[in-house]
């Protein structure tokens, strides 16, 4: 199968069950809503070392936010409900509550409820105030700047982590351009984030290592500089590979994001092949076959 002359390998991405929530951060203006969201989603590329995977999903116009101020949607993914709660507590407490003019609202209807504002409220040292509006309870925590408003509970749901595809090209310039176009296309899909820097990974990994203390190591089969030294998966004319990793609230959204991302990547000259990372289908709950994304 080919798209714009680029070979799409007959393989699949292997994705995993995760737990996710959507946090809406509002602030006085877009600048501060984004600043708070950027801080909250810092150091959150992979659950392996960061505890969660998080990213900015989209900006939200004032007319669609609860307080009528500009907002930013953040998606946070973790491997368990407990991990999700831990990460939300840390990240909202340290990155959102501290951010000037911010407020923090649940923006997901899920079947799992996680108490965050109901715990952060104790920062108010007894001067916190609860407001129940319909079924939503807000906490007003007095801070030096004024008041930090946060919803008592955030809702979460089962989600999908680890959707991916690899872009193989003749050099880094073309592969990076294709990756950037892929990420731009993915950003237009709701319910999905690409948590790595700029949405792109250059250091994909394989399970295991020759060193016993390491559980994962560099993906040697896709390292162009090792083509002649290992059992390489790279054609002779491929000199650079970048990976796009995706997390989504549901597999349909991940599929759509992968489809649009691959199409965008294939529109760039110098791209030779698109493939995906998997573990033989033995570990992940979701197997996303690349050809099936395009109805083949």
């Amino acid at each position: 199968m080919q798209i714009d002359g680029v070979e799409i390998e007959d393989t699949f991405a292997e994705a995993f069950k995760m737990y996710a929530t959507r946090v809406l951060i509002t602030a006085k203006n877009e600048k501060w809503a984004l600043a708070s969201a950027a801080s909250m989603t810092g150091f959150s590329t992979s659950v392996i070392m960061c505890g969660c995977e998080a990213g900015i999903e989209c900006e939200v116009p004032p007319e669609e936010t609860p307080d009528g101020r500009p907002g930013t949607n953040v998606l946070v993914f973790a491997v368990s409900e407990k991990d999700l709660e831990t990460q939300l507590m840390r990240r909202i407490g340290q990155c959102v509550m501290t951010s000037p003019t911010s407020a923090c609202f649940n923006n997901l209807e899920g079947d799992i409820k996680i108490t965050i504002g109901g715990k952060l409220r104790f920062f108010g040292d007894g001067y916190q105030i609860s407001k129940l509006l319909g079924k939503r309870r807000l906490w007003r925590i007095p801070v030096m700047e004024g008041e930090f408003v946060i919803e008592e509970k955030f809702q979460a749901q089962k989600a999908v982590g680890g959707g991916n595809f690899l872009i193989l090209g003749k050099d880094i310039d073309h592969v990076l351009e294709a990756s950037e176009k892929a990420v731009d296309a993915i950003k237009k899909v709701r319910n999905v984030i690409a948590p790595f820097p700029g949405g792109i990974v250059r250091s994909g990994s394989k399970i295991g290592s020759r060193y016993k203390f390491l559980e994962a190591s560099t993906n040697t089969a896709y390292c162009p500089t090792l083509k002649a030294m290992v059992e390489s998966e790279l054609p002779r004319d491929v000199n650079s590979v970048l990976e796009i990793v995706l997390d989504g609230l549901d597999v349909e959204s991940v599929n759509e994001a992968m489809r649009k991302g691959i199409e965008a990547a294939c529109s760039v000259d110098g791209i030779i092949k698109i493939t995906a990372g998997n573990y033989g289908g033995k570990l992940g709950k979701y197997l996303i076959h690349l050809h099936e994304l395009f109805g083949d």
Partner: peptide, 15 residues
């Protein structure tokens, strides 16, 4: 205490 624009009130009034 203070003169300010309470965020919770924005939410409340919009509701």
């Amino acid at each position: 205490n203070a003169t300010y624009n309470p965020v919770f009130l924005r939410f409340c009034l919009r509701e």
